[in-house]
Design a binder for these strands. Structure first.
Lengths: 347, 347
DNA sequence: CAAACAACCTGTATCGTTACAGATTTATAG
DNA sequence: CTATAAATCTGTAACGATACAGGTTGTTTG
């Protein structure tokens, strides 16, 4: 009541006319800084009335906690780090992925920081950086390998993360993945239904986990539906489109030419189409193709190609939800999701 | 020499076995924390030998300044904020843009934070957020308008930023832009050279600055080369491809059908091609098209379309360099760059 | 030989927040 | 009426870094 005894922390003048801090609220309410802090955290040893009063003032003056202060004191960064390869696929999966993640983070306190690495060989660097500097509360990685050292490392340190893609080490960790096994299997089914027998797969580089899935689905399909797999290992989805095209032209002009193609990405499909047409083949006539379709490109420009959609934006959302859940302590086994190929409807 | 007098700051024990801090180095070198700090900053009042010693130890133990500490004390965040619309163009410019920015930031102390906003109407929100909370040292914005309130605001506050796209307010600020005027002008030249006279432009939404450029270039071309501009205002580059396609089908089936098209984006071009082919027209025969080409899609799948490349990754690099330069105090007028359409070579 | 200076180094306070260990007041119990 | 507990509130220290205002030597100057 009297302001003699209440000459506590609150008495100090608040920051002039800068951003409001706890001190500002303390000054305005006549409370101590600690009390204000605890009131805003809804601590049990603060009266309901005080909390209400503090919250009101805080809202009024638009108080927002200083991130550096919180981070310095608690170590909590409120940052999610998306770790990206600078060589990321030409036909940028990145874009819808970033958008999807942002969509989720927008309604949270988390900021999205993009942390790049130069080449596959350096994939561990940014993870180490985050672990050593505590640059983020959680990490999203992609291009996972069966024995991914990044996963091992983060699990050892018990650091929250999620992978875009699975691993094969018997370690249970959060992931979101597209079912590439199913994609390839269904692709082979479709091609054989069209009477194609000599099939080729444009697949991921062999060290990535989804190579195993896509390759496995393809092989299983070939066995189940009685087709022949023609090897095509000179290039993979990581090569640039011009190289893929060149390699495909060689294949198509050789003795081992296929009559059916499964393209593991939309971009790859375009290169293959260019190659087959350059070597005088005609889609839907001499040869058929099934591909992923990121946009409506193939659907509209080569409707002869059967396409399936992979929703990368959705993947971004799932990944963001998973890291946050992991940070909040949800067990990893509850944070594993798959999404399935959606056959594209021709319009 | 004796360690009685030297019982200063350095005497305190360093953090146990956590991340090294200045205190760790101070302990190891026997110097004061302040001295270490100043040595690492290469201050003039520290002897060359001490600096060398400090640097050596710092390197040895892998010292990295704590970002929260620096940020709290100095206000310097070492963050660049990329402000993105969640509705960003389907044919993601975002991806190569993010990669380009990251490429540059990778060799600096800056981190890239992606800050999204939901709709065009809320474009000011993230900028205000950054200004109010000091969330970044510099900002990159895109989708600029002629009278862009974000630009006005940041200039008022003298806050470092760069825009992807220009403005029309007589304010001098850093930007990088693609020369859409030239693109459209050259597109019209090409079409008229092919004998096309009745031209249509699929253009940006009218409130964006590059609408003025593209539109202006188109109109100038039409005048200079004696063609006729056919209005096509029911859709623009912000509409989704399905809607663009539908609107184009209506146009092509109507009395005002064009014989030449300028497509302001690769995605838009695909929708237009789908539409014109659905209405029974044939590229290179009844009608011709000039478009931007983000990949090799059109080049390979519709070589009849003349394409020009816009290098978004380069744009990302330029933008990143410009914000950093601005932060370092380089005057805005030295940070304005344009890039020009590159006619695609058919392979 | 004292005063002034140069060359180097360092302690203190501070940025905003929170953990922790009290304080204070009022109510309850003995 | 006093000891004890319960309910609230608060000061201090610390996270890591840096601005600022001294210190301490040793050397030069008059």
């Amino acid at each position: 009541m009297d302001n003699k005894k209440s000459e506590g922390q609150a008495a100090a003048l608040p920051p002039p006319n800068e951003r409001p801090t706890l001190k500002t609220i303390a000054f305005m309410t006549g409370l101590g800084i600690t009390t204000v802090s605890r009131a805003l955290k809804d601590a049990s040893d603060i009266s309901a009335e005080t909390k209400e009063r503090v919250r009101l003032v805080a809202r009024q003056i638009g108080y927002q906690p200083n991130r550096a202060g919180v981070r310095l004191r608690t170590g909590k960064t409120n940052v999610i780090s998306l770790i990206l390869s600078l060589e990321e696929e030409i036909m940028g999966l990145t874009s819808p992925m970033v958008i999807g993640i942002s969509e989720i983070l927008a309604s949270t306190q988390y900021h999205l920081v993009v942390t790049p690495y130069r080449t596959q060989g350096n994939a561990l660097d940014p993870v180490r950086y985050v672990l050593e500097t505590g640059a983020a509360d959680g990490v999203i990685i992609s291009r996972t390998e069966p024995k991914d050292p990044r996963v091992t490392l983060m699990m050892e340190r018990n650091f929250p993360f999620v992978t875009h893609g699975r691993t094969e080490m018997g370690l249970v960790h959060p992931y979101h993945d597209f079912d590439n096994e199913r994609f390839a299997y269904e692709a082979v089914r479709k091609l054989t239904e069209m009477g194609r027998k000599r099939l080729v797969l444009l697949q991921p580089p062999p060290y990535l986990t989804f190579y195993l899935h896509m390759h496995g689905g393809f092989e299983r399909g070939v066995r189940d539906f009685g087709a022949t797999a023609i090897p095509f290992n000179t290039v993979n989805l990581d090569n640039n489109l011009v190289d893929i095209r060149k390699a495909a032209e060689t294949l198509f002009s050789g003795p081992d030419a296929p009559d059916g193609i499964v393209a593991g990405s939309g971009g790859g499909a375009v290169a293959l189409i260019a190659a087959l047409e350059a070597t005088g083949r005609k889609l839907g006539h001499d040869i058929d193709m099934v591909s992923k379709e990121p946009h409506m490109f193939l659907q509209w420009l080569r409707p002869e190609v059967s396409t399936m959609r992979e929703d990368i934006r959705l993947a971004g959302r799932e990944l963001a939800k998973a890291v946050i859940a992991r940070i909040e302590g949800i067990p990893p086994e509850e944070l594993q999701t798959l999404s399935y190929p959606i056959p594209t409807e021709h319009i």
